[in-house]
Every structure is written in C-alpha cells, then in structure tokens.
Design a protein around this nucleic acid. Structure first.
Lengths: 205, 205
DNA sequence: TGATAAATTGAATGAATGTTCAATTAATTT
DNA sequence: AAATTAATTGAACATTCATTCAATTTATCA
C-alpha cells in the first residue's frame, strides 16, 4: 500500500532539466539550486532522489551516452539490408540530424570528466567500445553479404571512428554554417571511401 | 623610481601552479583559494594580478595552447631539410613525448569551455588554424623540394589533423600501456601513409 | 635618508554551494 | 476512515567561493 512511486520518472525529469540548463550555461555553471529553481521545486528534492551531486552527474552522463547511442541506431526498414543499414549509420553520423539530437558541448564537457573520474571514464570507454563492436558487426555482415570489399574489418572500423572523432573535434569550432556543411559532406564522403562504398541517392538523400 | 615590477613573472608562476593543480584535480575543482594555499600567498594577491577568475582562466588557456604549439616546433638541426622537418613534427605528435609535455585532460577541459566562452573559442580556433597553416607550409615546402608527391596539400593537411584529433580522443581512454603504444605507432604509420612518406630509422628512432 | 611605487597581507564581504533533517502534503490500500 | 508510504517542502547548516578594500611590507631611485 502507500503512495505509488514516481522515482524513476521524476529522476528522468530532473536530468532532462539538468541537461537543458547545462547545455545552455555549461556543466560547471549548473547547480542543484538552479535546476530546482527552473523546475520550481525544492533543492532537497533533488538530493532526495540523487543522494549527491556526484550521482546526479552520473545520471546526466548516462542520459547523454544513451542519446549518443541513438546515432548508431538502424531503422526497422533497413535492418534486413546490411548495406542500407551501414549507409544509414554513416549518413546519421555525418548529418545535421546529429546536432538536433545531440549537444556536442555537453558531450565534451562530460568527456573532460573522464580524466579525473574513473566511473565516468568507464562509462565512456564501455560505450565507445560497444559502438566499435557494433560497427564491426555491420561491416562484417556487409562483407558476408558480398556488398563490401575490405580486408581488415577492425582496422576499417577504427579508421571510421578516428574520422568521426577527429572530424567533430574541429567541426565544433567552425561557426560558419556553409563551411560546416561542406566539411561534413567531405568527411562523410571520406567515410564511404574508407568503406569502398559509393553514396547512393536513395539513401544519402 | 619605486619598486621593480614582478607582474609578468608572478602571473606566470600563478598560472603554473593553477596548471599543476587543475591537472591533478580537474579545472572545476581548482579555486583561487586553493592556488593561493599551494603557493602560500594570499588569495587577494591572485586577484590583484588577474582581476577576475575569468581572466585567470584565460591565462591558463594561453599557457596550455602555448605548450600545445611546442609539439609542432621544428628543431634547428632540421629546419633546412623540409623532409626531416615534417618527419620530426609527425614523430613528435605521435610520441610519448607528448604526454610528458602536455596534459590532455586540461586540453579537453579547456576545449569544453569553447562551447560557452567566445574568447576561449577564438583562442582555440586561432591556434588550430595557425597549426593547420603551419603544416600546410611544411607539406608545400616538401612538395617544392620534390620529396613529397601529393596533389591537394590542404586536404592532406586536413586529413592529418583529423587523424590526430580522432586518434587522441580515443587514446585518452586507453589505460593499457601496451595497447596505447601500439595504437600510437599505428596512427603514426597512417599519418606517414597519408603523406606518402616512408618512416626512416634515422628520424623515427 | 626619504620619497615612491609595487608587492603582499589580512580581514571582511555577500552570495552560492551541496547537504541535513524534521515536518507536511498527497496518494493509495485495507 | 485509518493506515501506510512516497512526494515534497522549508528551514537551517557549514563551507567554499570570488572579490573588496584598507593597511603594511619591501624594494628601488633620487
């Protein structure tokens, strides 16, 4: 008996507000008090759900990495066609959709924490490694289906990831919209060339 | 008359302590009070030299980016030989020297600030662009000297930078020393292959 | 030696921080 | 309606923060 627990839903609400405030003002400028003020609740309620600020931050990292994972999601329509699936992933990664879905500033902000927080480092490492495995799987599948001609799958996947990380590191500093899009297209092109894949209009849109 | 000004030297001392503390504990955990305590001086003295914490952070960013620049420095002995100069730069970038000279955690920590601080963003952008120009110059020189066969110098330089940034992004999460070194060697190899250069024992050591 | 200017201290400020605990409100079950 | 459990509040806490200002120490020059 007693009242129904809202714990998980409430925690998510809090983290979402944390995310939006940190996105706007930066991680270090977003305090528990400010989150509470924005939600018009008492700061102690946030502590009630997350015992410490540390735990709250871990929650945010989880949230961010979950979003990040979505970039690599394959839509149901392409799940049977390994070539289309791979093209969709590459397309998602090097598209403007990314920016709508995801905030690079927070991603790098939390990434910076990995250098001093073992837990955050583990979360990042595990996610990045799992994404690597996922991409390896896709490429492997393509090779088995005979639509891809690569010799060393792991190296190819690594090259793709280096390209992604390196591309966005500099891109995040490019404010000129046109230059940004040109570079993005170029990097996508390069990813496809690493895979020995040609972009098709049907998928590349 | 009056006392001789120690301003610049003192500012540098303060920033060095700031750097070492932030390297150990993270940027957000390093306050003016802690820097002062470490130096056994009064916090107000730090404010006396840097009017605000903001300015102190800008000083740190300058300091970090100056260090970063050193990676691209060419030693006097190679300054006349464009091929050796380029090989030295590539060697420096993908070497363990980097880690001794430079703290990646702080570099990324300050990088994360670029998303909310226009001044920091400009400092980073200007530095990265100048390094790009520098590398372009080296490659250009190599081509003129006939020791390099590349068609689009700018693209090649961009590829190198993408490789660097992408490589270190993931490398920073690799704790296993052996894997770290293997990857590093692989990425250096890849840089040389982008340049159509073969590693020589004399330089690569 | 005395004037001058910079270095440095020391005390104090108010604001913001994360966190505590007890008290209260609200929903759900018997 | 009474009991139970969770949600939420509100007040208080000690700490830390960046920053202020006046006072003092220290070096340098005439």
């Amino acid at each position: 008996m007693g009242r129904k627990s809202l714990k998980e839903a409430r925690k998510k609400e809090i983290i979402k507000v944390f995310y939006s405030l940190a996105k706007k003002n930066g991680l270090e400028n977003t305090s528990i008090a400010k989150i509470a003020a924005k939600m018009e609740i008492n700061p102690s309620l946030i502590i009630h759900y997350f015992q410490t600020r540390e735990d709250l931050v871990y929650g945010l990292v989880d949230y961010i990495l979950d979003k990040y994972k979505l970039i690599y999601k394959v839509s149901a329509t392409h799940s049977k066609d390994s070539r289309k699936a791979l093209l969709e992933i590459i397309g998602n990664i090097f598209s403007k959709k990314w920016n709508a879905l995801f905030d690079d500033g927070l991603f790098y902000g939390c990434y910076a924490m990995t250098f001093h927080d073992a837990k955050v480092r583990d979360l990042y490492k595990k996610l990045l490694d799992s994404l690597r495995q996922m991409l390896i799987g896709h490429i492997e599948q393509c090779r088995e289906d005979g639509v891809l001609d690569v010799d060393d799958v792991e190296t190819v996947a690594d090259n793709i990831f280096v390209l992604i990380d390196g591309a966005y590191f500099y891109l995040s500093l490019v404010t000129d919209k046109e230059e940004y899009e040109q570079r993005l297209a170029k990097y996508r092109q390069q990813a496809l060339s690493i895979l020995h894949l040609k972009e098709l209009s049907e998928v590349a849109g």
